[in-house]
Design a protein around this nucleic acid. Sequence first.
DNA 1: ACCGTATACCTTGCAGTACAAGGTATCAAG
DNA 2: CTTGATACCTTGTACTGCAAGGTATACGGT
Lengths: 125, 125
Amino acid sequence: MKPTPNADREPPDKWEVQLRKGCLELAILASLWGGELYGLEILRRLASDSELIVSEGTVYPLLSRLKSLGLVESKWVESDAGHPRKYYLLTPSGRERAIEMAQIWSRFSAGLGRLLVPLGKGTAR
Amino acid sequence: MKPTPNADREPPDKWEVQLRKGCLELAILASLWGGELYGLEILRRLASDSELIVSEGTVYPLLSRLKSLGLVESKWVESDAGHPRKYYLLTPSGRERAIEMAQIWSRFSAGLGRLLVPLGKGTAR
DNA sequence: ACCGTATACCTTGCAGTACAAGGTATCAAG
DNA sequence: CTTGATACCTTGTACTGCAAGGTATACGGT
């Protein structure tokens, strides 16, 4: 039985799901910025560092895509206690792309933030 | 011939498109916060206030959905110079929802921003 | 040796969103 | 009557993330 990763999370608003679309690609690249990680570790990193709860079925296809785009590289590492793990790391193009995406994100985020200013009285909790 | 709204914009990176998914719903609600607007006006407001370039084929279906959800209301207004315009305005639930979404956005945005800190040296242009 | 559990990776079908392209209707100018 | 401008709407396509299910290796208990 799955441990139901998000048992006490937001209701199925469906909106938060749509919000992540596209951002996840950047999030994964960013999580690899500091060094190589393996699949499930990326998942946990995202959850702990940015409250971005995603499932494995989301991460692995995305990693495959990033790999076929030449943005990440992977290598198998024999684990002494467990099973082989596949570590992912950024390629030089991956780093460039990450910075490029981060810039787009920052501009976009600022623009939307500007739109939200008028209703700021409510967002201050 | 269409005036090609984004002739000198970003290349077809496809990514920026995916980035907007879900955010647009919030953006439209936010643009209506200050008062009622009609379809094309919303489009122009988004473009000028937040650099969010969208096409009509995106906005109208979205407005229909928001209306069927009871978040916005619409009314026809006979224009003296031109054709009838359909003005959209927020309902009370629409306002609540907008604030709710803005909060989610703000939390999400902060989380992703935290992830991007390590590569901040590059984003400072 | 055998079975259940935990870790780790991957694949398939589904649902939801934005977009480009095309279509309709009204009014004003030529 | 035709052209252009404004305004609204619809259809088909492409892309994304998700839930559910499947495979493989190691460890500990009986």
